[in-house]
């Protein structure tokens, strides 16, 4: 068991970074009500671009910023495909994701690339001691959540929420829904790409396949976080925090399964099962348990 516990700090790091990505997914999936599959591509775009930029000597913070905007551009493509060319949301995301795979390969020039940076500003290499990175990623996640809390509380932000909640109402109240969708998709994918850059930095390498399954992890984090903690508070900022915690739990469960089975090849299947279970929990609770309970009650009353 000691081996398992030794990996926990790095799992925590990883969980928080993927939690930041999940916050990006939260914006489209929960706020805009749009299942955006672009994220598998834009996550890798962020990582790959960051790797190539650091190799070229670009300062780390600037690398993060450029990755953010690259992700936002990817979101813009999906939004334009959806809003102005009438392509259904899921398909628009898949198309962009496919495009990004080629683009990411072009950016990186190879399938994967190590990052060797001695920049001390954000020292986040796994070999440099993972314990120091935990407060940094927590800080980044906290700042991000606060900024988003503010943004979605503004007049503009609430018009985005209205668009996601009820498009007919938004239109009837003079909101340009296409503009809102574009902005939300750009912010979401920008955050996702930023998380990709963070992960590349943390792992010390970037890989064109690093985003594969990102959407599943994002959804898993949202579902786990909101299922387990959602009833504690309806507060918007806290809910984004729950999502981050959801990602951490996801990675702990994951790590445990890997430790027990010792077969990393099974990971993809296991992750799908984990997501399916957590997605099914609210449904099972509603349909099977509540129904059984009320049946029981009725039977009792009949007596």
């Amino acid at each position: 068991m000691a081996g398992f516990f030794n990996t926990l700090p790095s799992v925590l790091d990883q969980g928080i970074i993927w939690g930041i990505m999940a916050i990006g997914v939260f914006i489209t999936f929960k706020i805009l009500d749009f299942a955006d599959l672009t994220v598998d591509g834009s996550f890798a775009t962020g990582g790959c671009l960051f790797a190539i930029l650091t190799a070229a000597g670009v300062p780390v913070p600037l690398g993060f910023l450029i990755s953010f905007f690259a992700g936002a551009a990817a979101g813009l493509i999906t939004a334009l495909l959806h809003c102005y060319l009438g392509i259904p949301g899921i398909l628009a995301g898949i198309l962009t994701q496919l495009m990004l795979w080629s683009i990411n390969y072009k950016i990186l020039g190879q399938a994967s690339m190590p990052i060797n940076s001695r920049d001390a500003l954000i020292s986040m290499n796994a070999s440099s001691g993972v314990y120091t990175t935990i407060p940094i990623v927590i800080g980044i996640a906290a700042i991000l959540i606060l900024v988003l809390y503010w943004f979605f509380g503004t007049k503009y932000g609430s018009s985005i929420r209205a668009t996601g909640s009820n498009e007919a109402m938004a239109k009837a109240n003079g909101i340009n829904v296409n503009a809102r969708k574009i902005i939300a998709l750009m912010i979401s994918n920008g955050i996702v790409a930023f998380a990709g850059a963070l992960l590349a930095r943390f792992q010390g390498s970037a890989d064109i396949n690093m985003g594969r399954g990102a959407i599943v992890i994002g959804l898993a984090a949202i579902v786990i976080g909101t299922t387990l903690f959602g009833r504690l508070s309806k507060n918007f900022a806290l809910n984004m925090g729950f999502v981050t915690v959801g990602a951490i739990i996801y990675f702990f469960v994951f790590q445990f399964i890997v430790y027990v089975t010792n077969e990393p090849e099974l990971l993809k299947m296991l992750s799908a099962i984990v997501v399916a279970i957590f997605l099914a929990v609210p449904y099972i609770k509603n349909v099977y348990i509540k129904n059984a309970h009320s049946k029981h009650q009725r039977a009792k009353e009949a007596k």
């Binding site: 509380g153 503004t154 929420r161 909640s165 009820n166 109240n173 003079g174």
Partner: peptide
């Protein structure tokens, strides 16, 4: 007619900006 996942007051605030601007001030 209303945004279901938003509060009563948030809905009213949105309606009160019909034809106006949605800036970055608090809603």
């Amino acid at each position: 007619g209303t945004a279901g996942s938003m509060q009563v007051i948030e809905n009213m605030a949105i309606a009160s900006r019909k034809g106006g601007h949605n800036g970055l001030g608090w809603y």
